[in-house]
Design a protein around this nucleic acid. Sequence first.
DNA 1: GAGATGACGGGCT
DNA 2: AAGCCCGCCATCT
Length: 103
Amino acid sequence: MTFYERVYEFVREVPPGHVVTYGQVALHLGAPAAARAVGYALSSLRPGNDVPWWRVINAQGGISLKNRGPQADLQRELLENEGVSFNGEGRTDLSVFRWWPRE
DNA sequence: GAGATGACGGGCT
DNA sequence: AAGCCCGCCATCT
Protein backbone atom coordinates (compact mmCIF):
# COMPACT_ATOMS: atom_id res chain seq x y z
CA MET A 1 0.00 0.00 0.00
CA THR A 2 1.71 3.15 -1.18
CA PHE A 3 1.09 6.69 -0.05
CA TYR A 4 -0.77 7.41 -3.27
CA GLU A 5 -3.10 4.48 -2.81
CA ARG A 6 -3.95 5.54 0.71
CA VAL A 7 -4.80 9.01 -0.52
CA TYR A 8 -7.05 7.64 -3.24
CA GLU A 9 -8.70 5.23 -0.88
CA PHE A 10 -9.67 8.00 1.49
CA VAL A 11 -10.86 10.35 -1.22
CA ARG A 12 -13.09 7.63 -2.61
CA GLU A 13 -14.97 7.62 0.69
CA VAL A 14 -15.98 11.25 0.43
CA PRO A 15 -19.71 11.36 -0.36
CA PRO A 16 -21.18 13.65 -3.05
CA GLY A 17 -22.01 17.14 -1.86
CA HIS A 18 -19.12 17.17 0.59
CA VAL A 19 -15.44 18.07 0.51
CA VAL A 20 -12.21 17.50 2.43
CA THR A 21 -9.02 19.55 2.57
CA TYR A 22 -5.52 18.43 1.63
CA GLY A 23 -4.35 18.82 5.18
CA GLN A 24 -7.30 16.81 6.38
CA VAL A 25 -6.41 13.93 4.12
CA ALA A 26 -2.81 14.06 5.29
CA LEU A 27 -3.98 14.06 8.88
CA HIS A 28 -6.12 11.02 8.28
CA LEU A 29 -3.14 9.20 6.80
CA GLY A 30 -1.15 9.85 9.92
CA ALA A 31 1.04 12.55 8.40
CA PRO A 32 -0.42 15.91 9.53
CA ALA A 33 2.15 17.90 7.58
CA ALA A 34 2.02 15.94 4.33
CA ALA A 35 -0.54 18.17 2.66
CA ARG A 36 1.87 18.89 -0.16
CA ALA A 37 2.44 15.23 -0.77
CA VAL A 38 -1.31 14.75 -1.00
CA GLY A 39 -1.51 17.33 -3.74
CA TYR A 40 1.38 15.64 -5.46
CA ALA A 41 -0.47 12.33 -5.34
CA LEU A 42 -3.59 13.82 -6.88
CA SER A 43 -1.56 15.51 -9.59
CA SER A 44 -0.56 12.10 -10.84
CA LEU A 45 -4.20 11.07 -11.29
CA ARG A 46 -5.23 10.37 -14.81
CA PRO A 47 -8.67 10.44 -16.38
CA GLY A 48 -10.35 7.09 -16.15
CA ASN A 49 -9.77 6.42 -12.47
CA ASP A 50 -12.57 6.19 -9.93
CA VAL A 51 -11.25 8.85 -7.57
CA PRO A 52 -13.46 11.92 -6.98
CA TRP A 53 -10.47 14.26 -6.88
CA TRP A 54 -12.68 17.32 -7.24
CA ARG A 55 -13.89 16.88 -3.65
CA VAL A 56 -10.43 17.76 -2.37
CA ILE A 57 -9.82 21.46 -1.82
CA ASN A 58 -7.41 23.63 0.17
CA ALA A 59 -7.75 24.79 3.78
CA GLN A 60 -9.30 28.06 2.64
CA GLY A 61 -12.21 26.23 1.08
CA GLY A 62 -11.12 27.18 -2.42
CA ILE A 63 -9.77 25.47 -5.48
CA SER A 64 -6.00 25.35 -5.77
CA LEU A 65 -6.04 25.00 -9.53
CA LYS A 66 -7.08 28.62 -10.08
CA ASN A 67 -4.71 29.32 -12.89
CA ARG A 68 -3.30 25.87 -13.36
CA GLY A 69 -5.61 25.01 -16.19
CA PRO A 70 -9.16 24.26 -17.31
CA GLN A 71 -9.57 21.73 -14.52
CA ALA A 72 -10.29 24.52 -12.05
CA ASP A 73 -13.54 25.43 -13.78
CA LEU A 74 -14.37 21.78 -14.13
CA GLN A 75 -13.88 21.15 -10.44
CA ARG A 76 -16.12 24.03 -9.44
CA GLU A 77 -18.74 22.88 -11.90
CA LEU A 78 -18.70 19.34 -10.58
CA LEU A 79 -19.01 20.51 -6.99
CA GLU A 80 -21.85 22.93 -7.65
CA ASN A 81 -23.48 20.08 -9.50
CA GLU A 82 -23.40 18.10 -6.27
CA GLY A 83 -24.86 20.91 -4.22
CA VAL A 84 -21.67 22.53 -2.95
CA SER A 85 -22.05 26.30 -3.23
CA PHE A 86 -19.33 28.90 -3.65
CA ASN A 87 -19.34 32.44 -2.27
CA GLY A 88 -18.30 35.59 -4.09
CA GLU A 89 -14.67 34.79 -3.49
CA GLY A 90 -14.93 31.38 -5.08
CA ARG A 91 -14.74 29.56 -1.81
CA THR A 92 -16.99 27.03 -0.12
CA ASP A 93 -18.15 27.16 3.49
CA LEU A 94 -16.08 24.45 5.13
CA SER A 95 -18.20 24.58 8.27
CA VAL A 96 -21.04 23.31 6.11
CA PHE A 97 -19.55 21.12 3.38
CA ARG A 98 -16.49 19.64 5.04
CA TRP A 99 -16.80 15.90 5.50
CA TRP A 100 -15.28 13.82 8.29
CA PRO A 101 -14.95 10.05 8.16
CA ARG A 102 -17.05 7.93 10.48
CA GLU A 103 -15.49 6.86 13.68
C1' DG B 1 22.80 11.00 -2.32
C1' DA B 2 21.88 16.17 -3.17
C1' DG B 3 18.87 19.64 -4.96
C1' DA B 4 14.51 21.03 -6.95
C1' DT B 5 9.43 20.81 -7.29
C1' DG B 6 4.44 21.03 -6.18
C1' DA B 7 -3.48 20.34 -6.61
C1' DC B 8 -0.46 22.73 0.86
C1' DG B 9 -0.69 25.06 5.58
C1' DG B 10 0.29 28.24 9.12
C1' DG B 11 2.39 32.25 10.89
C1' DC B 12 4.19 36.91 10.48
C1' DT B 13 4.41 41.65 8.23
C1' DA C 1 -6.76 41.43 2.82
C1' DA C 2 -2.44 40.32 0.30
C1' DG C 3 2.31 38.85 0.23
C1' DC C 4 6.18 36.61 1.72
C1' DC C 5 8.64 33.01 4.12
C1' DC C 6 9.48 28.63 6.18
C1' DG C 7 8.44 23.88 7.24
C1' DC C 8 6.49 19.39 5.63
C1' DC C 9 6.43 15.04 2.65
C1' DA C 10 6.84 11.97 -1.45
C1' DT C 11 8.94 12.07 -6.06
C1' DC C 12 11.77 13.21 -9.85
C1' DT C 13 16.08 14.53 -12.08
